[in-house]
Nucleic acid binder design. Structure first.
Length: 561
RNA sequence: GCGCCCGUAGCUCAACCGGAUAGAGCACCGGCCUUCUAAGCCGGCGGUUGUGGGUUCGAGUCCCGCCGGGCGCGCCA
């Protein structure tokens, strides 16, 4: 609807140009937007406000001319000029009826669109190194990344979820030493306990499994523990596999799966890091100084140049990062979304600089970054400190076990990524009306319950008759609910454009509210069969949209609660 | 010191490429269950959008300066 209104206004502008009421080159980035209140109609445009100057007239007069030039459209009941020169559109009931029929016809596909054209978009998120369990911050990353992936999919993109991890760096070395120390019976605090070791209890679990000769499978590879506490390399391989398996299990419990697990070590093994360095040198963006190889990232907007190869011959971490993103490019990811904690934002400029320096046609706005701010966890009114090294922190698994997958996902997705988030465990756990996720799920279950009630009363819902009788829906609650339903495709589009999945969560609450309000204002199971069928057609449409929206969040839509 | 993000009701947060009277939830006050689940609905209270300027028909939104909070500023990852 938004699009067709946009077209109508464009036609009106073109018409005014022909009449010389507007200069021939007059155009403006006008918008069609939902109004805030019903008295302003359903949609409004600011076209007259933006074009008034070019027309050398006042906005209201121009609005008059635009309205006069608007092509007729049966879905528009009324057009008004209001305020400083807004043009307000009032939709005809027929537009709402067509919408309800469309929801029934499209079902699970309602709200989806093909704007992505089937092109490939890679969404990288979590990308935690296998040095310990996932914590609540990873949970936020998982919820946001997975939801972005679902939203892009709903917009017609071929989405690849990708998890990148370092399986061979310094931190992994510390991990191996930690497990080895535990396997030798040492504990944190002991004189011989390694200085940079991980102190969490989970290290003891890994060590125990290693000594037991356990075999673990992770990311498609099986590793059997060598049991030899002197074989640090074997310990490392085992520990990585063990913790990767744990992380995968936690993510699976959270409802998140990946298409690609990308190992940093593979970049070295396949010579991709060397290739990248060679390309950068070849394009003349590097220089040697102080025994190190530098990349002139300042040519691409960075604060200062960055060392690529240290004087000891090893690479700094951002070189494989560039190689990794370049591999996404060569794998055909037309869009690459990288979801990170905002504490990594400092590295963005140099990675982008590295990609630009490859001179291979990567656009300046590729990849797209989505950064999320910290999560503060509250329990019993007190902040739970997160410290992996100290070994005491809230794991994602803890949250999913305690709070449930649905509420955890909802709480982590419902807020804009770039604002800090307070996760109140007590609130998320509460199965009460304090908890917004149940509110939405209850709306879905409520429709199911009405249909069950219908059955118990020995009645049947005639869908076709209902869809034919939509004109019987004439009260304000029905109008409000239909307006909410009509917004859904716009929200799906908007969430993908802005990469802001919280819009979905926000919207679903408003949709649920419209349904609950309708429920209380009017009985659905009435004696008048035509009216009954029409009302049921409307609430079943609402149920469909609730289900579709919850699916985008990865939250279940229960039939009863 | 420099860079990025944030600052909106007592609390947690919205506000669709700058739009009309800044909205929800929680908390608080008051109504509504012999009627499809009260995990619900309706009403009320609550704001100088941190602050001072600027841009324009119009600013929570854009620009500049302050104040406050977070994160980052390594030949660490």
């Amino acid at each position: 609807m938004k699009d067709s209104l946009h077209q109508l206004v464009l036609q009106a502008i073109a018409s005014l140009r022909e009449q010389a009421l507007l200069p021939a080159d007059a155009e403006a980035p006008f918008v069609i937007e939902r109004t805030r209140s019903a008295e302003h109609g359903d949609f409004a445009t600011n076209a007259a406000l933006l074009l008034a100057k070019a027309a050398r007239t006042n906005p209201r007069a121009l609005a008059q001319a635009l309205v006069a030039a608007l092509p007729q459209n049966p879905q528009i009941a009324k057009v008004e000029i209001a305020g400083p020169g807004f043009i307000n559109f009032f939709l005809a009931p027929a537009a709402d009826h067509a919408l309800v029929r469309r929801i029934h016809a499209q079902g699970d596909a309602f709200g989806r669109n093909a704007s992505g054209g089937g092109k490939t978009a890679g969404v990288e998120f979590v990308s935690a190194n296998p040095t310990g369990p996932l914590h609540v911050g990873h949970g936020r990353a998982a919820a946001i990344g997975d939801c972005i992936a679902r939203v892009l999919d709903a917009n017609g993109w071929n989405v690849k979820r990708e998890f990148y991890y370092n399986d061979a760096g310094v931190q992994i070395g510390n991990l191996a030493l930690s497990v080895q120390a535990r396997a030798r019976g040492l504990k944190p605090g002991d004189a011989q306990w390694p200085a940079d070791a991980y102190n969490g209890d989970y290290i003891a679990d890994v060590a125990q499994a290693y000594r037991d000769g356990a075999h673990v499978e992770a990311d498609g590879t099986v590793i059997v523990a060598a049991r030899d506490t002197d074989d640090l390399d074997a310990i490392r391989r085992f520990a990585v596999a063990f913790l990767r398996r744990e992380q995968n299990a936690d993510l699976a419990a959270f409802g998140v799966r990946f298409d690609v697990y990308f190992l940093e070590s593979s970049l070295y093994a396949e010579g991709k890091v060397d290739d990248t360095v060679r390309e950068l040198v070849g394009h003349g963006h590097t220089y040697e100084e102080g025994g190190a190889l530098w990349l002139r990232t300042t040519d691409f907007g960075d604060d200062k140049d960055r060392v690529m190869r240290k004087s000891d011959g090893t690479y700094t971490y951002f070189v494989p990062d560039v190689a990794y993103h370049y591999s996404k490019w060569t794998r055909g990811y037309l869009r690459a979304i990288t979801e990170l904690g905002s504490d990594h934002h400092g590295s963005l400029a140099r990675v982008k600089a590295g990609l630009q320096a490859l001179d291979c046609g990567i656009p300046n706005d590729w990849p797209e970054y989505v950064l999320h701010q910290m999560v503060t966890v509250m329990r019993g009114g007190e902040e739970v400190k997160l410290s992996k090294r100290a070994g005491s922190y809230v794991t994602l698994r803890d949250l999913v076990d305690e709070v449930g997958r649905d509420a955890t996902r909802y709480f982590l997705i419902a807020r804009k990524a770039d604002s800090q988030l307070v996760f109140d465990i007590d609130l998320a756990r509460s199965q009460s009306n304090d908890n917004p996720v149940y509110y939405i799920q209850y709306a879905h279950a409520r429709v199911c319950s009405v249909l069950r009630q219908l059955d118990e009363r020995g009645l049947q819902w005639d869908r076709d008759d209902g869809l034919a009788q939509l004109a019987r829906l004439d009260n304000e609650h029905e109008a409000a609910l239909m307006t909410e339903l009509a917004r859904y495709p716009e929200i799906v589009d908007s969430a993908a454009r802005t990469l802001e999945p919280h819009l979905i969560a926000q919207y679903l609450r408003e949709l649920a509210n419209a349904l609950h309000a309708y429920y209380h204002a009017h009985p659905f199971i009435v004696d008048d069969a035509a009216l009954r069928n029409a009302r049921l057609a409307l609430i079943v449409a609402a149920r469909q949209v609730l289900r579709n929206g919850l699916d985008l969040l990865g939250v279940s839509a229960p039939e009863s609660m």
